[in-house]
Design a protein around this nucleic acid. Sequence first.
DNA 1: ATAAAATAGTTGGATGTCCTAATATTGGAT
DNA 2: ATCCAATATTAGGACATCCAACTATTTTAT
Lengths: 170, 170
Amino acid sequence: MPDDQQSGLPYDPIEEARRQWEAHGWEEGAQGMAAVTSLMRAQQIYMARVEAVLRPLGITFARYETMMLLYFSRRGALPMSVIGSRLQVHQTSVTNAVDRLEAAELVKRTPHPSDRRATIVEITEAGRALALKATEALNSEVFSRPGLGQGDMSELVGILARLRKQAGDF
Amino acid sequence: MPDDQQSGLPYDPIEEARRQWEAHGWEEGAQGMAAVTSLMRAQQIYMARVEAVLRPLGITFARYETMMLLYFSRRGALPMSVIGSRLQVHQTSVTNAVDRLEAAELVKRTPHPSDRRATIVEITEAGRALALKATEALNSEVFSRPGLGQGDMSELVGILARLRKQAGDF
DNA sequence: ATAAAATAGTTGGATGTCCTAATATTGGAT
DNA sequence: ATCCAATATTAGGACATCCAACTATTTTAT
């Protein structure tokens, strides 16, 4: 987390940037710039909160997401490739995350029964316990107090769903 | 960018996660989880697009933001500390970004005239030219087609502004 | 049936981010 | 004058992400 600075800035830097965009004749990009920049900043804010909650548990958000995917799956197990496409991250990132989870004995690798190229990742009992603990911590410390009203929140989720859908996310 | 997969999933994974949250009795966190997860995914999507545009120009989004801050500043120059607090990143990240920008001769460091602890970062002519080029590329390839309608976009910017304000971002 | 192409996963290398801690310098407060 | 805070840098460590290249396997196309 960067330095706390309840800055006394009288303006929103992103609004200021939008004005600059318009002043430079970039009207066609001004709104998109504001949207993208806001999104980046908001993600940065939440990621810092989430990682602060997970750090004491020894995991990161990427590994938490991996574990929850397994936690919710029918057999508590999924192929590496499915994890990558669900989380929309590169295969090598999955390898990396699973390596670390496996070293901590939170998941284990198993050969795929029919396709010998593939590897199945299965969550362990310790993994389930930690996933539960992490979820409870996130729920109470972040998700139940997201800093937005109910109306804004459901509006936000809806807008981002349209955005994600348009981007082929689902 | 991860594998393209215009997946044929019949559902939104985040909606699915929300149902799981509710099924596990975590109602108080379900909406926040959906909001935070959506935000992370949306950021991931945009960041990939933005970095793809900037990569050929040899800069990253972090360095682009640093340059634009200088580009818009009155004298084309700001102290390191101001850059860090505006972008809300760690000092060491600013040092890192400025190191690379300086190596590419896009900015240069100058001693602060009155405070000899401080360092002023100034954008060079080459820096201005590249910042302009990068902005034009981002405007035409990302910002002017953000994958959202005008209404959604201004709604999104508004909601995120409230969120950021509540988090002390400005 | 066999060669070519696609898929699954790993490795090694590069980038970039954050964190902690230590150092040097300087500014401001008492 | 002295102590404490602030500014920036450096060094070391942990991570996540991507890319290119590689191995092994499976699928496809001829």
